[in-house]
Amino acid sequence: MTIMLLVLMLGLSIFMLVSRDLLFGIIALSAVSLLSALLFYLQQAPDVAITEAAVGAGVSTVVFIGIIRYTERKDRDP
């Protein structure tokens, strides 16, 4: 279970880094946070899991999505 979660998180992180659309990257980052919250819970650290779920998947996603409203698309789809 732990290995599976870690592999999923690694895959999502790489997708986040190479994705061309900022919104997809942010959603992938949020999913990584959610998976790591699950991982913390499975490792018997529920306090950290609550923080990670609320900050990583909730608040920071809201801030990032709010911030990309200020950006513009420089390149068209290939």
Binding site: D47, I50, T51, A54, V55, G58, V59
Partner: peptide, 8 residues
């Protein structure tokens, strides 16, 4: 933890 959930 309670603080960040309250912020949400």
């Amino acid at each position: 933890q309670g603080g960040v959930v309250t912020a949400s």
